[in-house]
Amino acid sequence: MSAHLDPATHDPSLTAAPPAGTGITLIVTERVRHSQLEAYEAWARRLHAAQGRQPGFVGLHVLRDLSGPVAEYVTLVRFRDPASLEAWRATPAYREALTELDRFTASEVEYREAQGLEAWFDRPARLPAPPLWKNVIVGVVGVYPLIMLFATLLRPLTGEWPGWAATLATATLSTLFLNWPVLPLLSRLLRPWLYPVRRAA
């Protein structure tokens, strides 16, 4: 599955970082008939534009696989907290969009929710999650430079603070930037290593 990011579906608000530990991601898997691809993507752009105007929306990421008998789209929609996600689900725009979805899809739509960093290891459909040791390595590669950067930048401000307070400030900023954009970017750059292709013998 290849990553597909359409700038027309994104809002400038996706540069905002969610509060550490409270972000929630709705993961939607849709299998779309090839004859409906153009209509589906137009529908998706309208839906994503509406999400971009919703309070609490952080950003979205779309994975698209057109190689099978039906196209498969995995959309990760991130909100600041569960209350923001529930507020979005209650909107007329979302409810109206759902009434159109059956026109495009070839099977039941799958929904899953994930909190924290879990969803940004955005595995392609039908592939197992990477082993824990790979997730740990990606996390260290992402967070170590952030810790060093913010420890240096904050030193003039926090130099006289107690050690625990200075560490807390560094850890908070590092966690925010790890959630967005560092970890999503790393998961895409390292996708061949995280999800190696298994070739039939």
Rank of each mutant, 00 (worst) to 15 (best):
E100C: 08
L132N: 11
V140A: 14
G59R: 04
R64M: 07
A83R: 13
R95Y: 07
A90I: 02
G56V: 14
V138T: 15
R78C: 08
R53I: 00
L66A: 02
L76P: 00
L132E: 14
L60R: 04
V143I: 15
R103K: 00
L66T: 15
I147Y: 08
F79T: 09
R80D: 15
L146A: 06
V109A: 06
L149V: 14
R80G: 15
V140G: 11
T158S: 13
P55S: 00
L117S: 14
S107L: 04
A50Y: 01
E118K: 09
H48F: 12
R89G: 12
G159P: 04
F57V: 01
G59N: 04
E160G: 10
T158Y: 05
R95T: 05
T158L: 08
Y144C: 08
H61K: 11
R78H: 13
P130C: 10
G68C: 01
L153S: 02
L146S: 05
R89V: 04
E118N: 08
I137A: 15
E72G: 00
A125P: 04
G56F: 09
P82Q: 11
V77I: 12
R80A: 15
L153H: 03
T99L: 13
A106P: 09
V74G: 01
R126P: 01
A106C: 03
R155A: 08
V138I: 15
M148R: 10
L157S: 10
F121C: 04
E113Q: 07
L127D: 13
L76S: 00
L149G: 09
P82H: 13
F57S: 00
L98Q: 14
R155Q: 05
Y144M: 14
L157G: 12
F57D: 05
L85F: 02
L153W: 04
G52E: 04
L132S: 11
T105L: 06
L154D: 07
R103A: 02
G116N: 04
G159D: 06
R112A: 13
P156G: 10
R64S: 05
R64W: 12
P128T: 15
F150R: 00
A106Q: 09
P131T: 12
A83T: 14
D102H: 07
A129K: 09
P156E: 14
A93Y: 07
F79E: 06
M148T: 11
S84L: 07
V62N: 06
Y111E: 02
T75L: 14
G56K: 05
F121G: 05
A129Y: 06
P145M: 08
Y144S: 07
